[in-house]
Design a protein around this nucleic acid. Structure first.
Length: 194
DNA sequence: CCGGCGATCAGCT
DNA sequence: GCTGATCGCCGGG
């Protein structure tokens, strides 16, 4: 698995959450979960920023609990949680230790390991493999076991890339009007148009 | 293409 | 006991 790769480091993730959410667009999310010799990866095309305790849309709004503890931890780690009893959602932790913040990864454009993704998703349609936060975790093999995994190490990581034009909207399933959702303009793997 | 609905369970009240 | 940062299936236009 000695592929040449530069990984985003903890200083990238330590910044303010909306800044990290924007900067992650265009970057490559790579997983070697469950595979020793093959990688599964995709370009991040859609993210959402979840701020700290002042953000009603954030789990941290109700303070620090066993579940939200990772959001207060080291930047550059994963915060993975279960939603609707079924789907694992992947966030990357932002901001310095002791301050809550996380970016939800909402959609990817598949790049490597497409056959593995099709197997894991039990789905042949490329367009449907990773176009949602619960879909992409399945495609990459991410489960609750990967909560707090260090994204600067070699199980699950992000490689820097530059992005095209970015569009902004309110967050999916959050009923405030804060513009904290970011996605690549005219990318067909974004989960929703608006 | 789009809207409605049920599944399923950890975390919090 | 209630709820959700979702998804897939089903039916109608």
């Amino acid at each position: 698995m000695e592929r040449y790769s530069v990984k985003l480091d903890s200083s990238f993730y330590e910044r303010d959450t909306p800044e990290v959410a924007r900067a992650l667009l265009g970057c490559l999310l790579v997983s070697r979960i469950g595979r020793k010799n093959s990688l599964v990866s995709g370009i991040i095309v859609e993210t959402e920023a979840y701020l700290g305790e002042t953000d009603p849309g954030s789990h941290a709004f109700r303070g620090r609990t066993p579940r939200t503890d990772p959001m207060y931890g080291e930047p550059g780690r994963a915060y993975v949680y279960l939603i609707y009893g079924k789907y694992c959602l992947l966030n990357v932790v932002t901001r310095p230790v002791g301050t809550a913040g996380a970016v939800l990864i909402r959609a990817l454009e598949p790049v490597e390991g497409i056959e593995i993704m099709k197997e894991r998703r039990a789905c042949q349609d490329l367009r449907d493999l990773t176009t949602g936060p619960g879909k992409l975790t399945l495609a990459l093999g991410i489960t609750l076991d990967h909560n707090t995994v260090d994204l600067t190490q070699d199980l699950l990581w992000v490689e820097p890339r530059t992005a095209g034009e970015i569009q902004v909207s309110s967050r999916i399933g959050v009923s405030d009007h804060q513009a904290l959702r970011y996605f690549l303009k005219e990318n067909r793997f974004v989960s929703r148009r608006h």
